[in-house]
Each structure stands twice: as structure tokens, then as C-alpha cells.
Design a protein around this nucleic acid. Structure first.
Lengths: 342, 342
DNA sequence: AACGTTTTCTGAAACGTTTCATGAAACATT
DNA sequence: AATGTTTCATGAAACGTTTCAGAAAACGTT
């Protein structure tokens, strides 16, 4: 590829007739550069179209790059989140790079290692499947902020979440207030769930609400897996499981779903089976995905304020990069978006 | 953060009692290392948990990292694409890093620069809004493969596409064969569209099919913008525009939509307005998004074979990294997925 | 005028790799 | 036994930054 005409910090220094150090100082607007100096250097940089090499920077100082590890790319929650993160970063001079973990521990771990190998200045992890000690270990190497992962007592990294317990409570109570007593929760199989997972926290909220409503004996949690990652498409709930579920349960029934990912399919299958919504089957989901607002879906859902979460996480990681070491744990308030599904 | 115990290539060399060069050679399995040497070194690497620093590598040789620039993250087509890319990369020892351009030229350009600053070994661009000369310029710095961007004669980079013209023809003819004569196309406003864009190519295919079917006089292309990027959520078509569209046109009408992104909303609004599908309004989309298969959507669509495209692009970029310089332009065959929407 | 501060600037070392030039050892060919 | 060829191993230079230690200049204070 390219050859000679590579413009480095040396080229700039020569052109501006100053030292290399001076250019570096201007670049990082370090202390002790005169206005005259800055002008000269900036002019040369502009003229030559100079861009500092991130790899070279990484050898000594910062890379001005932050890594974001996403579990899966098609989750609508993730899209909104990313928007929030980007918004905050636009105002900074840090760059964002993303990794896509596809929900597999091994890939996630590799990606985090890669980010560290790239000397990224900080890392935002979205709903990682990693244990506390592993996270603590990583946090010793690089500032870490978690989104969608509950470790409210961790000392070495920050967390940003919606109050999942409260969100589940709100949904469950809303179903109750609408007259439902046969209220179930649909979530992921427990073999994939740990206490720090959002779905676990939502189960806690559901159970707590049921107790409070005097329905402790009616607590009923059913599970439905996502389709195995085919790499051919998005994660989708297994439609057969959902059909069986709907066939086998007494009507009327109300479902609080851990995610719109499931809720939309539940609603869809219910309608396909000719069940009346919300009279026979009522549903409230979680995440308020864009598709939930479609007329032919019309799914009520708990909104996390994902872009808010993204903005907060971005702010926190930038704070940590500039020195903060005390942990912060942010909890957003969930909001019920009412639609005709209950 | 971390302190002394940093394990570098020197540490490994010392531990294995060999030269630094030897370790480097083993790492890149270069020519001329004895089995004994390799064993010793690998053992030390394993023991010490050594990982080469990508930034340091970038200073001289390769970084073993490939960048992927996505336009927008929530497009279902993108998700499938990424799956395909990742699948191919798993077998290599190259890593992937993603950038999200949100369809804005400025952000896209910055991200590409960032990837070059990071000395990435190759770049895959998904539907970028960049002109040929700019791309040619970039291709001199780094191997480039484009997905969803038609420059079939470019000499300096590869392209990977579905045959968009043919896809549009298939859809248009399918509507014709179903008895429709009032066949329109719904696409993006032309101010955002260039000849290299997939939507432009689909327009070409639509027009060509109409000509072939003797409906040249009935060619009718209508446009609908996507919602301004609020950063608060996904791109969505403007519902008002779509409603106006449906109100104002004679029925029965058939729409070929440039993307399911629009088609799903068109279908949704049609049903919300009480129009009969497919008798009053027939629709065929493009991309075969996962949601199109929902019972309450049931949208026929042109499938691009996105994961195939991803695999091809990945292969091509790896080939270019290992030296190929002649251009390759791959065209996938589109496939109509029949559903009740027409 | 002498002295201490502060500001502004610089050369050189350091970061962790890869690559280059070179040489020693082993092997093959006469 | 002498000579060429391959294989295997190495020390040192190079990559493009940041940072360290310190010099020169400007400024304030006595």
C-alpha cells in the first residue's frame, strides 16, 4: 500500500519549525504552550493533513479509544443504547469501537482481551456473562463500566441499569389493576441466568409484586429459549414452545415477559391461534422495542430509557479515564408504556 | 491501574531462554523455527499468559485486526451480515472491530480514519455514503471491501452485493403475476441517493421490469423519508407520509418497497386503515427481516442471503490482506420469500 | 541588580513489537 | 576435505508517539 509520503509528528515538527515534543503538547493540549506555538503547529497539522497514529500513542500514553462490548446486535434495546453512548462521545475527543459477543462467553472474553491488547482507555460492557472476580480482575487493567448487569456493591467498576425489579413490579401490578389474577412471567431458561442478569432481577420483581398483591400462591414462571445462534439471523424465541405454552394454559391469562423479544412473538402466536387480546391473553413486555408500537403489534412494555443509560455509561467511563476511582452505581426509573395488549 | 508484572515479549524470551526475535518468529509462525524452539516458546507463552500488544505490533507489522463500518445497527440485514462475517473470521487469527456510522457522512469518514489510525489490516464498509474517488484514495492506504455499494468497475477494492436490479425485477414481476397492474415502488427520497446505492439499483430493476411487462407508462415511484436520527431510537419511516400515501392512491394498488423497514410500516398502516391485504394493497419488501415472518405481519420479501454476503466479504478482505491486488466483484442471487402480503 | 518563579521550549529515552543483516551450525555435493 | 546451501538463531535498528529531565527566556520581587 502507501509508501513514502507518510506524514508523522516529525513531518509536522519540521514544517512548523518546532520540536516534536511541542507538537505532541499541542496535540494533547498539555500545559505550557504559547498561543503562537499552538497556531503554528495547528496550521501545519491542517496543511499536511496529519493524524496521530493510535498504535504509536498506545505504546506510551492513551489511545483515546473506548471499546463497547455488545452481546447481540439486533436487540432494539442495544441500538438505542448505542445512540446514547455515541451522543455523549461526540462531545469528547474519544473514539468508540464496538465488539459483538453474540452472547457467547468465549467470544466475549476474547473481545475484551482484544480491547485490552489494543490499549483502549476504557471499556463499556453491555450485559456480559462474566462473574464478579473476572470483572474485578479486568478492572485492574482498564476502567470498566457495565450496562445491564447488576453488581451494586462492586468496588472496582461502575454499573448502569434500569431498576429491573421495579420495572417488573410495575408491569405485574398493571396487569393486576386491569383485572388479571392469573399472572405469569415468561423468561429465559435458568441454566443461562445468573443473579447479576437483568432477567433474574425481573423475576425477583415479579415475585415480589405477586406477594404484595396476595397472589404468592399463583406465582408461575415459564421459560422459553431463544433459537440457537445460527449466525444466519437474529435470535428468535422458539415458536413451538410458545404455541405449546398458549395451548396448555387456562384462559384468561396474563403474561409479563422479560423482553419484547419474547413478548412480540407471544402476542403474535396468540393472535394467530385466534385468541382474543387482551381478553384471553394479556401481555406486557420489557424494553419498548420500536416494533411494539406497530398497530398490528400494539404491545405494552416497560421502557428502560436506554439512551439515558447509554449517556450515563459514557459519562462514567470518561470520568474513570480522567481519574475517578470510587465506584458509582446508577439506577434509572422504568416507565410503563400503555398499549392495547392488556 | 496495572503495574510492574507486565509480561512482554522480553519476559517470554527470558523465560524460554531464547532471543526476542525467536519469540516473534514463533508468534507469527514465520519461516525457520525448529520444533524444539517452538515448543519452548509456546510453553513459556502459555505459562506466563502472554498476549502480544496490538499497538506495538501496529508500529511495524500487522495488527491482525479488521474494521467493519456499519451504517446503522438496528437494520436486520446488518445483523445477519455481521453473523456471516464473524463466522468466517472465527477460523482466522484476525480480530474484528466495529464502527457505527449512523448513516452520516461525517461520522462515517471519521470512523474510517480512526480505523486507519489504528493500523487495521483491512476494512469492510457496509453501504457507505462515499464517492468513488474517496474510496480509491482510501484503498491506497488499506485493503477495502464494500458491501451493499455498487461500483462494479472499481479497480482498487472489492464489492459484494446481491443483484439488486434482479431482486427488484423478481418482486415487480411477482406482483404482476398475481394480477396487479397498478404497481408502484416506495423508496427513499432521491436527495440521499446516489447511483452506487442499493436503493438506486432497485429502482433501476423496478423500472426495467415495468418496461418489460408493457407497463412503462405506469411507472410510479413514491418516496418516504426515515425519521430524523433522534439518537433516541431506531430509524423508522414517517408514519404520516405513509398514511397520506395510502389515502391518496387508487385501489387496488401494489407496492414494491426498497426495504422491509418501509414495507412493514406500509403494511401496518394499511391494516390500521382497514384496507384489505392483499386485495386492496399488496406489498413486497426487500431484506426478509425476521419480523416479516410474524403472523401479524406476513410480509413477502426479497432475501439477499445476507450471511452469505458477509462470508464472502470476509473472505475477500482476508485475501487482499494476504496480497491479492486484482479486484473482485461478487453478486449474489436474490430469492423471493412468498407470504400473504401479495 | 540580583534572585527566585513561572512559562515556554527541547533532546533523548522509553514503549513492545517486527524486520534486517549477519553469523553459526548442519547438511549436501563435489 | 573442501565447498556451497540450507536451516536456525540472534542483536540491533526501526516504527511514531509520550514523557522525563532540564535549559532558556520571561517575569516579579526584593
Amino acid at each position: 500500500m502507501s509508501k513514502a509520503n507518510k506524514v508523522t509528528i516529525k513531518t509536522v515538527a519540521a514544517d512548523a519549525e518546532v520540536s516534536v515534543t511541542a507538537v505532541s503538547n499541542v496535540l494533547r493540549n498539555a500545559y505550557g504552550v504559547s498561543d503562537a506555538m499552538r497556531d503554528k503547529v495547528l496550521k501545519s497539522i491542517e496543511k499536511l493533513g496529519y493524524r496521530p497514529s493510535t498504535t504509536a500513542r498506545g505504546m506510551r500514553g492513551q489511545t483515546y479509544t473506548v471499546g463497547v462490548l455488545l452481546m447481540d446486535i439486533l436487540n432494539p434495546f442495544v441500538s438505542e443504547l448505542v445512540g446514547g453512548i455515541q451522543q455523549t462521545f461526540e462531545a469528547s475527543n474519544y473514539k468508540l469501537m464496538f465488539g459483538v459477543g453474540r452472547g457467547e462467553r468465549q467470544i466475549e472474553s476474547n473481545l475484551i482481551e482484544t480491547m485490552i491488547d489494543n490499549r483502549m482507555d476504557g471499556i463499556i460492557l453491555v450485559a456480559p456473562h462474566l462473574e464478579l472476580d473476572r470483572l474485578d480482575h479486568l478492572a485492574r487493567e482498564v476502567p470498566i463500566v457495565l450496562i445491564g448487569h447488576h453488581e451494586p456493591n462492586s468496588q472496582n467498576f461502575d454499573t448502569v441499569n434500569v431498576d429491573d425489579v421495579e420495572g417488573a413490579r410495575i408491569a405485574t401490578r398493571a396487569l393486576f389493576d386491569a383485572g388479571h389474577r392469573n399472572i405469569r412471567m415468561l423468561t429465559l431458561p435458568s441454566n443461562n441466568i445468573a443473579e447479576f442478569d437483568v432477567s433474574f432481577q425481573r423475576e425477583v420483581g415479579y415475585k415480589r409484586a405477586m406477594q404484595e398483591l396476595g397472589l404468592g400462591d399463583a406465582i408461575h414462571i415459564v421459560t422459553c429459549d431463544l433459537r440457537p445462534k445460527t449466525l444466519e439471523g437474529a435470535d428468535q424465541p422458539l415458536p413451538e414452545t410458545i404455541r405449546t405454552l398458549l395451548h396448555s394454559c387456562d384462559k384468561p391469562v396474563a403474561y409479563f415477559c422479560w423482553s419484547d423479544l419474547h413478548a412480540i412473538h407471544l402476542l403474535d402466536q396468540a393472535r394467530a391461534m385466534g385468541l382474543r387480546v387482551p381478553d384471553d391473553v394479556a401481555v406486557i413486555g420489557f424494553d419498548n422495542a420500536p416494533n411494539s408500537a406497530l398497530h398490528s403489534v400494539d404491545l405494552a412494555s416497560i421502557d428502560q430509557g436506554a439512551s439515558d443509560l447509554g449517556r450515563h455509561a459514557a459519562r462514567l467511563v470518561l470520568e474513570r479515564i480522567s481519574g475517578r476511582s470510587s465506584p458509582q452505581h446508577f439506577l434509572n426509573s422504568p416507565r410503563l408504556v400503555r398499549r392495547a395488549s392488556f
